[in-house]
Design a protein around this nucleic acid. Structure first.
Lengths: 219, 219
DNA sequence: ACCTGAACACCGTTCAAGT
DNA sequence: ACCTGAACACCGTTCAAGT
């Protein structure tokens, strides 16, 4: 509502993008707005509220794919547009694990996934679990990319791959040495998404087969 | 090595378990050891080094299953023992996303998974990716459990489920209202693990079929 | 209603000083 | 080598005071 609040969130978002989440300080945000730290409190109940506002902004950036696509394409596109939205503000991704996504925007993307899984023929009882499985993986992947689990910030820190490929205490690494290079994360994400979609398709196929069997034995 | 360092890490671990990661302060750790904050620096190069030490302790807690089990049981047991280890120090889980697991202990559990995937017949080129997929999911699941994405700290904050089940803007939620209750996270984790293992088995089955086809068309 | 400035109880870390 | 105490440059937030 208040345009002053939007101004504050804009400033906080800029700081997070430029200097990381640690630099998002009441004082720093205030100074970028051109005001004292205390002047933020009428518009933001405290730091936690400020961060909640940033999460809302972050989730507002995920575009929902065209509902007329087939369910596999819908999930694939949602995965990509979700990842892109988080990449736009990588410093904020850790915030997504702190609280349940109970805002309307968060529930709407969950609803979109629910609908895709319904259309896929997944049994209802499995759908909330599979929605959590998919989004948990997506958030985990992006935070791993952006917070340093996959790629270390410093360039030299990835020697461990070649070292591990020669370490006698890591026999399987040695066996896979030829294949341990750092991959394209775009490609890896796409392949993971395909595997998860295949998993969902398998689930619904198994269900359909079971239903058919039941029908046959009934008939 | 230094037993003073171990003493410091013990104190930090206790504070993290009792009061959370935010309470792990150089001053608080020092005072629990019975010493000034500055007295920590000869044994710990700074706060980052202290947190690295805690991560090492955390990962030391994941037990590797018996290597003689079949690959599916090995993955299943490793998933459970990994989750249990993280549950012992939930406050530390966010630290796992910050840096690549390049310590020996971390690489040894990766090696264990590599071996299971090799035994499953997964093509080598897919193995590092699938290892990351599995561990990314596991870490994402546990951090979601323990940091509040799945379960809110305050009891009353889970009303959104029943509210969402009635919200006209969330048609799929309405359709699934009967099934939106908070699940048993133990059961959900087990089901997710089974699905992922099934996905791996499917991958290797596809590969084997392709190889057989190639062999047939060659012969 | 909105903002300021001083203050409080904290941080991590440096530095000179002690033993 | 190990530890102390004062200090520095920060935090988030409260509170009294201004307009």
């Amino acid at each position: 509502m208040s345009e002053r609040r939007d101004q504050i969130l804009d400033a906080a978002l800029d700081i997070a993008d430029e200097e990381g989440l640690g630099a998002v300080t009441m004082r720093a945000v205030a100074s970028r707005v051109g005001v004292t730290a205390m002047a933020l409190y009428p518009h933001v109940s405290g730091k936690e509220d400020l961060l909640d506002g940033l999460v809302t902004r972050l989730l507002a950036g995920v575009a929902l794919p065209d509902a007329s696509l087939c369910w596999t394409d819908r999930l694939r596109e949602l995965g990509c547009s979700g990842r892109e939205a988080l990449h736009r503000h990588p410093a904020l991704v850790p915030l997504l694990f702190a609280k349940p996504g109970s805002t309307l925007a968060a529930r709407q993307t969950a609803d979109f996934i629910y609908q895709a899984l319904l259309d896929a023929g997944v049994p209802a009882a499995q759908i909330p679990r599979l929605e959590r499985l998919i989004t948990t993986f997506l958030l985990g992947f992006v935070i791993s990319e952006t917070s340093g689990r996959f790629v270390a910030g410093t360039a030299g820190a990835q020697d461990w791959r070649t070292a591990a490929g020669r370490d006698t205490r890591l026999p399987a690494h040695r066996q896979l040495a030829a294949v341990l290079a750092e991959p394209s994360w775009d490609d890896e994400f796409a392949a993971d998404l395909d595997d998860l979609i295949g998993m969902v398709a398998g689930r619904s196929a198994a269900e359909n087969a079971a239903a058919e069997n039941a029908a046959v034995s009934r008939g």
